[in-house]
Protein backbone atom coordinates (compact mmCIF):
# COMPACT_ATOMS: atom_id res chain seq x y z
CA UNK A 1 0.00 0.00 0.00
CA UNK A 2 2.83 2.41 0.88
CA UNK A 3 4.55 1.60 -2.39
CA UNK A 4 1.33 2.35 -4.23
CA UNK A 5 1.34 5.81 -2.72
CA UNK A 6 4.48 6.69 -4.54
CA UNK A 7 3.08 5.85 -7.94
CA UNK A 8 3.19 9.03 -9.98
CA UNK A 9 5.58 10.76 -7.60
CA UNK A 10 8.69 12.02 -9.34
CA UNK A 11 12.07 10.55 -8.49
CA UNK A 12 13.19 13.97 -7.36
CA UNK A 13 10.32 14.11 -4.87
CA UNK A 14 11.03 10.59 -3.64
CA UNK A 15 14.67 11.44 -2.99
CA UNK A 16 13.74 14.57 -1.07
CA UNK A 17 11.13 12.70 0.96
CA UNK A 18 13.61 9.99 1.93
CA UNK A 19 16.18 12.67 2.75
CA UNK A 20 13.66 14.42 5.02
CA UNK A 21 12.84 11.15 6.74
CA UNK A 22 16.54 10.40 7.37
CA UNK A 23 17.21 13.90 8.69
CA UNK A 24 14.22 13.75 11.03
CA UNK A 25 15.16 10.31 12.30
CA UNK A 26 18.77 11.33 12.96
CA UNK A 27 17.98 14.76 14.41
CA UNK A 28 18.01 13.89 18.15
CA UNK A 29 21.44 12.29 17.77
CA UNK A 30 23.03 15.62 16.90
CA UNK A 31 20.72 18.31 18.30
CA UNK A 32 20.60 19.56 21.87
CA UNK A 33 17.59 19.30 24.16
CA UNK A 34 16.22 22.71 23.25
CA UNK A 35 16.30 22.13 19.51
CA UNK A 36 14.69 18.72 20.01
CA UNK A 37 11.89 20.43 21.93
CA UNK A 38 11.39 22.81 18.99
CA UNK A 39 11.23 19.82 16.64
CA UNK A 40 8.60 18.24 18.89
CA UNK A 41 6.50 21.36 18.38
CA UNK A 42 7.07 21.11 14.63
CA UNK A 43 5.93 17.48 14.52
CA UNK A 44 2.93 18.12 16.72
CA UNK A 45 1.85 21.12 14.63
CA UNK A 46 2.27 19.05 11.46
CA UNK A 47 0.13 16.32 12.98
CA UNK A 48 -2.71 18.54 14.23
CA UNK A 49 -2.50 20.55 11.02
CA UNK A 50 -3.00 17.37 9.03
CA UNK A 51 -6.03 16.48 11.18
CA UNK A 52 -7.62 19.91 10.74
CA UNK A 53 -6.79 19.91 7.04
CA UNK A 54 -8.98 16.84 6.56
CA UNK A 55 -11.93 18.95 7.59
CA UNK A 56 -11.30 22.19 5.67
CA UNK A 57 -8.89 21.10 2.98
CA UNK A 58 -10.69 17.89 2.05
CA UNK A 59 -14.29 18.27 3.16
CA UNK A 60 -14.63 22.07 3.02
CA UNK A 61 -15.72 22.67 6.61
CA UNK A 62 -14.05 25.43 8.60
CA UNK A 63 -13.58 24.57 12.27
CA UNK A 64 -12.33 27.30 14.56
CA UNK A 65 -12.88 25.20 17.66
CA UNK A 66 -10.52 22.26 17.31
CA UNK A 67 -9.03 23.09 20.71
CA UNK A 68 -12.17 21.37 22.00
CA UNK A 69 -10.90 17.93 21.01
CA UNK A 70 -7.36 18.67 22.12
CA UNK A 71 -8.62 19.72 25.54
CA UNK A 72 -11.23 17.00 26.01
CA UNK A 73 -8.79 14.20 25.25
CA UNK A 74 -6.06 15.82 27.33
CA UNK A 75 -8.31 16.13 30.37
CA UNK A 76 -9.80 12.66 30.03
CA UNK A 77 -6.49 10.85 29.65
CA UNK A 78 -4.89 12.92 32.43
CA UNK A 79 -7.88 12.37 34.70
CA UNK A 80 -7.78 8.61 34.13
CA UNK A 81 -4.07 8.53 34.88
CA UNK A 82 -4.09 10.71 37.98
CA UNK A 83 -7.27 9.40 39.59
CA UNK A 84 -7.37 5.80 38.44
CA UNK A 85 -3.81 5.01 37.42
CA UNK A 86 -4.88 4.17 33.87
CA UNK A 87 -1.98 4.86 31.56
CA UNK A 88 -2.23 6.94 28.40
CA UNK A 89 -1.86 4.02 25.99
CA UNK A 90 -5.14 2.72 27.35
CA UNK A 91 -6.60 6.12 28.22
CA UNK A 92 -6.28 7.29 24.65
CA UNK A 93 -9.20 5.06 23.65
CA UNK A 94 -11.88 6.57 25.90
CA UNK A 95 -10.38 10.01 25.26
CA UNK A 96 -10.68 9.66 21.50
CA UNK A 97 -14.11 8.04 21.86
CA UNK A 98 -15.41 11.07 23.77
CA UNK A 99 -13.96 13.43 21.15
CA UNK A 100 -15.67 11.49 18.40
CA UNK A 101 -18.95 11.43 20.33
CA UNK A 102 -18.87 15.18 20.94
CA UNK A 103 -17.99 15.77 17.28
CA UNK A 104 -20.91 13.55 16.32
CA UNK A 105 -23.24 15.68 18.43
CA UNK A 106 -21.89 18.85 16.84
CA UNK A 107 -22.17 17.35 13.36
CA UNK A 108 -25.68 16.12 14.02
CA UNK A 109 -26.77 19.61 15.10
CA UNK A 110 -25.03 21.29 12.20
CA UNK A 111 -25.61 19.03 9.23
CA UNK A 112 -29.32 18.40 9.72
CA UNK A 113 -30.10 21.98 8.76
CA UNK A 114 -27.24 22.44 6.31
CA UNK A 115 -25.36 24.66 8.70
CA UNK A 116 -22.15 25.38 6.84
CA UNK A 117 -19.59 28.11 6.29
CA UNK A 118 -19.61 30.79 8.93
CA UNK A 119 -22.41 29.24 10.95
CA UNK A 120 -20.52 25.98 11.23
CA UNK A 121 -17.37 27.79 12.31
CA UNK A 122 -19.33 29.61 14.99
CA UNK A 123 -20.89 26.43 16.26
CA UNK A 124 -17.42 24.92 16.65
CA UNK A 125 -16.27 27.98 18.61
CA UNK A 126 -19.36 27.83 20.79
CA UNK A 127 -18.73 24.17 21.64
CA UNK A 128 -15.12 24.91 22.59
CA UNK A 129 -16.21 27.87 24.72
CA UNK A 130 -18.79 25.79 26.55
CA UNK A 131 -16.07 23.25 27.32
CA UNK A 132 -13.68 25.97 28.49
CA UNK A 133 -16.21 27.46 30.87
CA UNK A 134 -17.42 24.02 31.92
CA UNK A 135 -13.95 22.71 32.81
CA UNK A 136 -13.35 25.88 34.84
CA UNK A 137 -16.01 24.48 37.17
CA UNK A 138 -15.12 20.79 37.22
CA UNK A 139 -13.33 20.27 40.52
CA UNK A 140 -12.42 16.69 39.65
CA UNK A 141 -9.86 17.98 37.18
CA UNK A 142 -8.76 21.03 39.11
CA UNK A 143 -11.17 23.60 37.68
CA UNK A 144 -9.81 26.99 36.67
CA UNK A 145 -6.76 26.48 38.87
CA UNK A 146 -5.35 23.88 36.50
CA UNK A 147 -4.76 20.16 36.54
CA UNK A 148 -1.27 18.82 37.10
CA UNK A 149 0.24 15.47 36.29
CA UNK A 150 2.74 14.31 38.89
CA UNK A 151 6.34 14.56 37.72
CA UNK A 152 8.29 12.17 39.96
CA UNK A 153 11.83 11.09 39.35
CA UNK A 154 10.97 7.47 40.16
CA UNK A 155 8.46 7.43 37.29
CA UNK A 156 11.08 8.45 34.74
CA UNK A 157 11.62 5.95 31.99
CA UNK A 158 8.11 4.52 32.29
CA UNK A 159 7.51 4.85 28.60
CA UNK A 160 4.27 2.94 28.99
CA UNK A 161 2.97 5.86 31.03
CA UNK A 162 4.53 8.47 28.73
CA UNK A 163 6.86 9.39 31.60
CA UNK A 164 10.02 9.70 29.62
CA UNK A 165 12.57 12.09 28.25
CA UNK A 166 12.34 14.46 25.28
CA UNK A 167 13.89 12.02 22.82
CA UNK A 168 11.07 9.58 23.45
CA UNK A 169 8.46 12.30 23.00
CA UNK A 170 10.24 13.42 19.86
CA UNK A 171 10.05 10.04 18.19
CA UNK A 172 6.45 9.68 19.26
CA UNK A 173 5.58 13.06 17.74
CA UNK A 174 7.49 12.17 14.60
CA UNK A 175 5.57 8.91 14.36
CA UNK A 176 2.28 10.79 14.71
CA UNK A 177 3.25 13.35 12.06
CA UNK A 178 4.47 10.71 9.62
CA UNK A 179 1.45 8.50 10.26
CA UNK A 180 -0.97 11.37 9.68
CA UNK A 181 0.82 12.28 6.47
CA UNK A 182 0.60 8.73 5.15
CA UNK A 183 -3.01 8.40 6.26
CA UNK A 184 -3.95 11.59 4.44
CA UNK A 185 -2.05 10.46 1.36
CA UNK A 186 -4.04 7.21 1.36
CA UNK A 187 -7.31 9.05 1.99
CA UNK A 188 -6.62 11.55 -0.78
CA UNK A 189 -6.64 8.68 -3.24
CA UNK A 190 -9.47 6.74 -1.65
CA UNK A 191 -13.16 6.72 -2.44
CA UNK A 192 -13.88 8.53 0.81
CA UNK A 193 -11.33 11.21 -0.04
CA UNK A 194 -12.95 11.75 -3.43
CA UNK A 195 -16.35 12.04 -1.77
CA UNK A 196 -14.98 14.73 0.54
CA UNK A 197 -13.47 16.68 -2.34
CA UNK A 198 -16.72 16.50 -4.29
CA UNK A 199 -18.73 17.76 -1.32
CA UNK A 200 -16.16 20.49 -0.69
CA UNK A 201 -16.40 21.72 -4.27
CA UNK A 202 -20.17 21.54 -4.72
CA UNK A 203 -22.45 19.67 -2.31
CA UNK A 204 -25.48 19.57 -4.63
CA UNK A 205 -23.48 18.35 -7.59
CA UNK A 206 -21.89 15.69 -5.37
CA UNK A 207 -25.33 14.61 -4.21
CA UNK A 208 -26.49 14.29 -7.80
CA UNK A 209 -23.63 11.81 -8.29
CA UNK A 210 -24.90 9.57 -5.53
CA UNK A 211 -22.84 10.96 -2.66
CA UNK A 212 -24.51 11.37 0.73
CA UNK A 213 -23.47 14.89 1.76
CA UNK A 214 -23.98 14.55 5.49
CA UNK A 215 -22.27 11.17 5.74
CA UNK A 216 -19.25 12.53 3.89
CA UNK A 217 -19.09 15.58 6.13
CA UNK A 218 -19.66 13.59 9.29
CA UNK A 219 -16.91 11.09 8.48
CA UNK A 220 -14.42 13.93 7.94
CA UNK A 221 -15.49 15.61 11.18
CA UNK A 222 -15.24 12.44 13.28
CA UNK A 223 -11.85 11.48 11.87
CA UNK A 224 -10.48 14.97 12.31
CA UNK A 225 -11.78 15.19 15.88
CA UNK A 226 -10.43 11.76 16.82
CA UNK A 227 -7.00 12.53 15.39
CA UNK A 228 -6.87 15.84 17.22
CA UNK A 229 -7.81 13.97 20.39
CA UNK A 230 -4.68 11.82 20.12
CA UNK A 231 -2.63 15.02 20.03
CA UNK A 232 -4.47 16.10 23.18
CA UNK A 233 -3.31 12.98 25.05
CA UNK A 234 0.24 13.66 23.91
CA UNK A 235 -0.07 17.27 25.02
CA UNK A 236 -1.28 16.32 28.49
CA UNK A 237 1.62 13.97 29.22
CA UNK A 238 4.20 16.16 27.53
CA UNK A 239 3.26 19.42 29.24
CA UNK A 240 2.10 17.84 32.54
CA UNK A 241 -0.25 20.75 33.23
CA UNK A 242 -3.64 21.68 31.84
CA UNK A 243 -5.59 24.91 32.19
CA UNK A 244 -9.07 25.29 30.65
CA UNK A 245 -8.26 28.91 29.81
CA UNK A 246 -5.35 27.73 27.68
CA UNK A 247 -6.18 24.38 26.17
CA UNK A 248 -9.77 25.21 25.19
CA UNK A 249 -9.07 28.82 24.25
CA UNK A 250 -9.89 30.14 20.81
CA UNK A 251 -6.27 31.23 20.45
CA UNK A 252 -5.32 27.55 20.78
CA UNK A 253 -7.79 26.66 18.06
CA UNK A 254 -6.16 29.29 15.88
CA UNK A 255 -2.67 27.96 16.68
CA UNK A 256 -3.86 24.59 15.38
CA UNK A 257 -4.89 25.98 12.01
CA UNK A 258 -1.94 28.26 11.29
CA UNK A 259 0.38 25.57 9.92
CA UNK A 260 -1.97 24.21 7.23
CA UNK A 261 -3.11 27.68 6.20
CA UNK A 262 0.42 28.95 5.84
CA UNK A 263 1.61 25.77 4.19
CA UNK A 264 -1.42 25.31 1.95
CA UNK A 265 -4.96 24.18 2.75
CA UNK A 266 -5.94 20.98 0.97
CA UNK A 267 -2.38 19.92 0.20
CA UNK A 268 -0.68 16.94 1.80
CA UNK A 269 2.62 18.63 2.46
CA UNK A 270 1.24 22.06 3.42
CA UNK A 271 0.70 21.31 7.12
CA UNK A 272 4.24 19.92 7.37
CA UNK A 273 5.83 22.89 5.64
CA UNK A 274 3.70 25.30 7.68
CA UNK A 275 4.83 23.63 10.90
CA UNK A 276 8.47 23.89 9.87
CA UNK A 277 8.05 27.59 9.18
CA UNK A 278 5.96 28.48 12.23
CA UNK A 279 7.46 26.71 15.21
CA UNK A 280 11.02 27.96 14.65
CA UNK A 281 9.69 31.43 13.78
CA UNK A 282 7.83 31.46 17.08
CA UNK A 283 10.94 30.46 18.99
CA UNK A 284 13.04 33.12 17.27
CA UNK A 285 10.43 35.77 17.99
CA UNK A 286 10.23 34.81 21.64
CA UNK A 287 13.98 35.00 22.12
CA UNK A 288 14.31 38.31 20.26
CA UNK A 289 11.40 40.03 22.01
CA UNK A 290 12.51 38.62 25.34
CA UNK A 291 15.95 40.11 24.79
CA UNK A 292 14.64 43.60 24.02
CA UNK A 293 12.12 43.50 26.83
CA UNK A 294 8.80 43.37 24.96
CA UNK A 295 5.82 41.26 25.96
CA UNK A 296 7.00 38.07 24.29
CA UNK A 297 3.79 36.00 23.87
CA UNK A 298 1.94 39.10 22.66
CA UNK A 299 4.58 39.97 20.09
CA UNK A 300 4.72 36.43 18.82
CA UNK A 301 0.95 36.26 18.38
CA UNK A 302 0.91 39.71 16.78
CA UNK A 303 3.53 38.72 14.22
CA UNK A 304 1.68 35.45 13.55
CA UNK A 305 -1.52 37.41 12.99
CA UNK A 306 0.20 39.71 10.49
CA UNK A 307 1.81 36.69 8.85
CA UNK A 308 -1.58 35.02 8.52
CA UNK A 309 -3.07 38.14 6.92
CA UNK A 310 -0.13 38.48 4.55
CA UNK A 311 -0.32 34.84 3.46
CA UNK A 312 -4.08 34.85 2.91
CA UNK A 313 -3.84 38.13 0.99
CA UNK A 314 -0.70 37.39 -1.00
CA UNK A 315 -0.36 33.61 -1.29
CA UNK A 316 -3.87 32.25 -0.63
CA UNK A 317 -2.91 28.76 -1.81
CA UNK A 318 -0.19 28.65 0.84
CA UNK A 319 3.56 28.30 0.58
CA UNK A 320 3.72 24.64 -0.42
CA UNK A 321 2.48 24.92 -4.03
CA UNK A 322 5.05 27.69 -4.56
CA UNK A 323 7.85 25.69 -3.01
CA UNK A 324 6.81 22.58 -4.90
CA UNK A 325 7.09 24.31 -8.24
CA UNK A 326 10.35 25.91 -7.12
CA UNK A 327 11.76 22.46 -6.36
CA UNK A 328 10.18 21.21 -9.58
CA UNK A 329 8.08 18.59 -7.79
CA UNK A 330 4.67 17.95 -9.19
CA UNK A 331 2.55 15.38 -7.57
CA UNK A 332 3.54 15.22 -3.91
CA UNK A 333 1.15 17.98 -2.88
CA UNK A 334 -1.86 16.92 -4.86
Amino acid sequence: MIAELFAGVSTRARVLLVLLAVVMLAAPLVLDRYLVSVLILVCLAAYTGQAWNILLGFAGLLSLGHALYLGLAAYISAGLYVHFGIGPWLGVFPAVAVCVAVAALLGWLAFRFRIEGVYFALLTIAFAEVARIGFDHIGFTGGAGGFFLPVRSEDQGQWWNLRSGPTFFYYLALLLAAGAFLLCAVLRRSRLGHRWLAVREDPEAAQALGIHINRARMSALLLSAGMTGIAGVFQAFYANNLFPSQIFDISRSIDLILAPIIGGVGTLFGPILGAFVLAPLGEVLISITGAIGLNAPGTKALVFGLFLMAIIAGVPTGLWPRLASLLRLRSVGR
Binding site: L197, A198, A205, L209, G266
Partner: peptide
Protein backbone atom coordinates in the same frame (compact mmCIF):
# COMPACT_ATOMS: atom_id res chain seq x y z
CA UNK B 1 -23.02 23.77 -15.08
CA UNK B 2 -21.56 22.82 -11.71
CA UNK B 3 -18.15 21.28 -12.25
CA UNK B 4 -15.91 20.56 -9.25
CA UNK B 5 -13.88 23.62 -10.14
CA UNK B 6 -10.63 22.95 -8.27
CA UNK B 7 -10.41 19.33 -9.38
CA UNK B 8 -9.11 18.06 -12.70
CA UNK B 9 -11.38 16.95 -15.52
CA UNK B 10 -10.29 13.38 -14.85
CA UNK B 11 -11.08 13.63 -11.12
CA UNK B 12 -14.49 15.10 -11.93
CA UNK B 13 -15.37 12.12 -14.09
CA UNK B 14 -13.83 9.60 -11.67
CA UNK B 15 -16.03 10.90 -8.85
CA UNK B 16 -19.01 10.04 -11.01
Amino acid sequence: VRPFAELTVMENAAIG
